[in-house]
């Protein structure tokens, strides 16, 4: 599904070079549920960004569904992100000015879909995460758990093959965190969506099929 080969990522400023990832090779298969763990600054988030095509590796090859990403051209990359990948962030990143229903529709906006169809799919996605009652609410009126569910609905609405979740439970208490994790597991089981989740929490990670550990930009086993 997603394959990283010999990835290096170097952050450069005028004076300092920071090596965020060093010779990382990972292969995530279709339908897998992978957790990525490691201390702060170990390169987990960088890894996720590269997997999600949000960032370009300094060296190495990324391929998604067998397509090798050669040139990171804005238009093509944006299209791939839109079709294949759904993102869930620690701090939800919902757009404050849009209602829940409108927030969820965002990925479909970039697919030139008629608004009626978009709405239908949004309703379905919200039903899927159990939030059908709050469609007209605004992000500021939601609790943390509800916000994250909206974010998941937004991630799944486009029917992506892969969901990348960056500490999705990091801002939530354990009950809510478990609920969110259950939704992700359910997606993985029933829709065979590939899920890659960055987390700090061993208990959360234990529920996944595979754990990849990171330390100082290197993969450790």
């Amino acid at each position: 599904m997603i394959k990283l080969e010999n990835i290096d990522k170097v952050y450069r400023t005028k004076t300092v070079e920071t090596l965020a990832l060093q010779n990382v090779s990972i292969n995530v298969g279709k339908g897998e549920f992978v957790s990525v763990m490691g201390p702060s600054g170990s390169g987990k988030s960088t890894l996720l960004n590269i997997m999600g095509l949000l960032d370009e590796p300094t060296k190495g090859v990324v391929s998604v569904e067998g397509n090798i990403i050669k040139a990171y051209r804005d238009k093509e990359i944006a299209k791939m992100r839109n079709r294949m990948i759904g993102f869930v962030f620690q701090s939800y990143h919902l757009i404050r000015d849009l209602s829940v229903l409108d927030n969820v529709q965002i990925p479909l906006l970039y697919r030139n879909m008629p608004s009626k169809e978009r709405k239908q799919l949004a309703h379905k996605a919200l039903d899927r995460v159990g939030l059908s009652a709050r469609k007209e609410h605004f992000p500021s009126q939601l609790s943390g758990g509800q916000s994250q569910r909206v974010a998941i609905a937004r991630a799944i609405i486009g029917n992506p093959e892969i969901i990348l979740a960056d500490e999705p439970t990091g801002n939530l208490d354990s009950t809510m965190g478990n609920e969110i994790l259950d939704i992700l597991i359910d997606l993985n089981k029933n829709e065979s969506t590939t899920i890659i989740m960055v987390t700090h929490d061993e208990r959360m990670a234990d529920k996944s099929e595979r754990i990849i550990r990171f330390f100082d930009g290197c993969q450790v086993n």
């Binding site: 238009k75 944006a78 992100r81 990143h93 757009i95 970039y110 697919r111």
Partner: peptide, 15 residues
């Protein structure tokens, strides 16, 4: 944040 989300979900620069 809005810009980031839109980009992550597939908005191009032009859009």
């Amino acid at each position: 944040s809005e810009i980031g989300v839109r980009k992550a979900f597939g908005a191009t620069q032009k859009i």
